[in-house]
Simulated assay, not measured.
Amino acid sequence: MSFKNFPMVSRVIFGRGSFNQLDEIIAPKRNGREAPFIFYVDDVFKGKSWLTSRIPLAYKDKIVYVSTEEEPKTSQIDELVESLILEFSERPSGIIGIGGGIVMDIAKAVSIMLTNEGETKDYQGWDLVKNPAIYHVGIPTISGTGAEVSRTTILTGPERKLGINSDFTPFDQVILDPELTKDVPKSQWFYTGMDCFVHCIESLNGSFLNAFSQSYGEKAFEICKEVFLDDKLSEKESQEKLMMASWHGGMSIAYSQVGVAHAMSYGLGFLLGVKHGIGNCIVFDHLEEFYPDGVALFKQMKTKHNIELPQGICKDLDDEELDIMINVALSLEPLWENAIGKNWKDKITPKKLKQLYLKM
């Protein structure tokens, strides 16, 4: 048998205040004065000088503020790439994403599309990217998505919601500075943290599980329980631990796969624009049949943090709309195979998914 040779983030720096080293980290990668660094920054940081004043701009470098109201679209990536090609005479020295999963996915996708021809939608899928991306750096400002470590980018295309899964997707450098997560609103902290928790449950209960993904998944799972159920942690400890859980959870699914909650959440995201973290929560709340212990723990965490999830978001959808979501979910075959096994199609039918969606 042949074994998959996985890429990893080649360099990572961790610690409170490590963001201040960004300049010395990226300076050696500069390809001259005409080749800028492009900083994609979550627009919640507009006017927040405690972060923006520390971005090391020089020459033609540029900050591009990105709205995270919606998940990134393939058309949006095409527009961002085109604007860089039109504005600068030389290809950027590097792309730096500062924000949550959405911003990091945008940074990863743009860095790939600057070296690969065609439209972004042509690369949605597994191992379709031919050329290495340009140098790209991920700096998470919220913990849980695992986007800082994964080999995918979650993108909504004209036909489906699916990532660019490739060996060229992972960042060349990641900066994990827990201090950057200090202003995250409570509900967002919970939803994104639960993305990590669900990664662990789906990886540890999946048929693709191996010793490598298991060691990361078990560690992330333990940290999530500590962060969301233990009252003894200080705020700083909680920030640091959740950042580590996110990394380990991301590593766990990088070497295995996610499952039912993610597949169905992609359907909600594609049709209704439900964001990934809260989408996972809405779906996972109804998956006792697949992950009984995990869902019980999730409900405990939800109660402890007084989180009220939206109810009945699918009840007024017509059959055509439900079919769109069902088809998006069913197209994610590796996720179903991991969750249910090789014969997943016998158990996971459109009728079954319709019943589940109507509960949400």
Rank of each mutant, 00 (worst) to 15 (best):
Q124K: 08
S89R: 12
I98T: 05
R91G: 02
D127A: 14
P92M: 05
R91K: 15
A107N: 08
A133V: 01
P92S: 12
A107V: 00
I134C: 08
I98A: 08
I102M: 07
T115P: 01
A107T: 04
A109M: 01
V110G: 01
G94D: 06
G125I: 02
R91S: 07
E119Q: 15
P132I: 03
F88Q: 10
E87S: 15
I102T: 14
I134K: 08
E87T: 15
V129L: 11
D122L: 05
S89G: 12
L128G: 15
G100T: 01
A109G: 03
E119K: 15
I98E: 06
V129N: 06
P132K: 12
I102H: 04
Y135E: 11
I95T: 00
T120F: 05
E90C: 14
P92E: 14
R91P: 09
W126A: 12
D127N: 14
I112S: 08
D105P: 09
M113L: 14
T120Y: 03
G99K: 08
P92I: 02
L128Q: 12
M113G: 05
E90F: 13
T120P: 11
G118S: 10
I95L: 10
P132S: 10
I96M: 01
V129I: 09
F88G: 11
E117S: 14
D105K: 03
M104E: 10
K108M: 04
M113C: 13
V129A: 09
I98P: 12
R91C: 15
P92C: 04
I96F: 04
G101N: 04
N116M: 05
S89Y: 11
E119P: 07
I98Y: 06
S111T: 04
L128N: 13
G125F: 09
Y135D: 07
I134R: 06
D127L: 10
N131D: 09
S89K: 12
E119V: 12
I98Q: 09
E90W: 10
V110K: 02
